[in-house]
Nucleic acid binder design. Structure first.
Lengths: 244, 244
DNA sequence: TTTCTTTGTGTAAATTTTACAATAAGTTTG
DNA sequence: CAAACTTATTGTAAAATTTACACAAAGAAA
């Protein structure tokens, strides 16, 4: 058992954490789990956290991220992009985190290095349901995220800044918009994620010129204003061009 | 000892690898080590590899990268940027790599996940000298890199593509150019790293307008052509603007 | 029919990008 | 000493892109 200790210290554990951003036409949200509390008192609230867990023996990192996300939230079939690795030796040292680790992990004192992934999805397409050590799994508005477990606030911030920077090269539209959509709807996507306002005329000119979308004959129905034309993405584009 | 095995398998080891690019006015090079061969035969050549090694207990990743680089090549005082983590379960499975690990590591069968860092420096400022398990530490032209140990060719490729993408935001000039330099000299830096030709007039206009550099009174001496004016970087800029 | 709401559209000015070639200042050579 | 050589230095016109900005149109609701 002395060996056990020594080795567990020498070898850090490795985990993956997933930052899943969800766009719901009006807000940018992030998928968080509530961990089961480490005490037995019924009234206790567990910490909110990004879905994440230790990787398995001989498991590829990308596979681990998919598996962990599925095990905790039942989400699958989404593309996860690795964006950073966090290994501060004190990243698990908050008292409440320590308690949770002691109640949950086989070797709670082990250091954990985590490889972080992110994704951006259309919220309606994915309905998380909690499982494993997740008591809840919910979409939380990006502006209403409170204190998260471990260093997850730091991880989330970094993910958000990378999302903004790389938005233009995410094959975003394909996943994030319904089959048919209006230009205002698409503009809202960009405005919400980038957290800025864009000029309507300039946005339209630019995106139409890019060729990424195609106008349809159809228009909106049953709206109390001039109905907007629907568009769809041009299938031949795999990547969004640099249009914002 | 059974425990020992089990745990070493469950807990992957974690290493850092450093991709140090060196600019020497005419070429882009990368710092490689030759590992001591795993056999005792004097004639054997060790594999070429990026400098890298396991992290220590309770050592921060960034600190580990600095330490490992120093231990193997005696380079210090350079900024290392983390860019990706590689964890393919088979990344150490080539026979020659296995032999080296068995001759070198305490737990050679352990899986290793590596966090990769890169940097870009002016080559003349750094004179690597090998130590630790490095038999040699040398600058190798980026076009003359052969087969490297482990998955280091993959790591190098990724580092190079990220270097090109992020060149514009590296406080490059400050580190990469001598105190005084000519515009042609600076242009060469960009051309070599980006591996393209740039228009002289356009390059000059753009970089002068950016304000990042200041002309000096001094000119070249002893060259067999019209002497060029020297410039220096404007200290108030910490970051290169988007000028290429 | 009036009001309300969102759609849809054009243009001029400013800025940036791109392509392109001749003269200047020295050194070397004959 | 003149000619040849080498690299430095400079400008401009055309094209493309960006930016700022306002009003008429289509339908639903009142």
């Amino acid at each position: 058992m002395a060996d056990f200790q020594t080795i567990s210290k020498l070898n850090p554990h490795v985990s993956v954490d997933c930052v899943i951003f969800g766009f719901d036409n009006n807000d940018l949200k992030v998928l968080l789990i509530e961990q089961f509390p480490s005490t037995n008192s019924v009234s206790d609230r567990g910490s909110m956290a990004l879905p994440g867990n230790l990787i398995k023996e001989d498991e590829d990192l990308d596979d681990a991220a998919k598996r962990v996300l599925k095990e905790l939230t039942n989400l699958s079939d989404l593309y996860l992009e690795q964006f950073a690795t966090f290994g501060n030796p004190n990243r698990l040292s908050k008292p409440e985190d320590r308690r949770w680790l002691e109640a949950t992990r086989e070797i709670p004192e082990a250091r954990v290095i985590t490889v972080a992934y992110y994704s951006l999805v259309r919220l309606e397409r994915y309905s998380p349901t909690p499982s494993g050590f997740a008591k809840n799994a919910t979409w939380v508005n990006i502006n209403e995220v409170g204190n998260l477990a471990f260093d997850h606030n730091i991880i989330l911030e970094k993910a958000l800044s990378i999302l903004k920077k790389d938005l233009h090269k995410i094959p975003a539209g394909f996943e994030l918009m319904p089959e048919k959509f209006t230009l205002s709807h698409l503009q809202r996507l960009y405005e919400i994620i980038l957290n800025t306002e864009l000029d309507k005329r300039n946005f339209r000119r630019k995106i139409i010129k890019s060729g990424i979308i195609k106008p349809l004959k159809e228009k909106q129905e049953g709206v109390n204003h001039k109905p907007a034309r629907f568009f769809r993405f041009n299938k031949k584009y795999q990547e969004a061009p640099d249009f914002i």
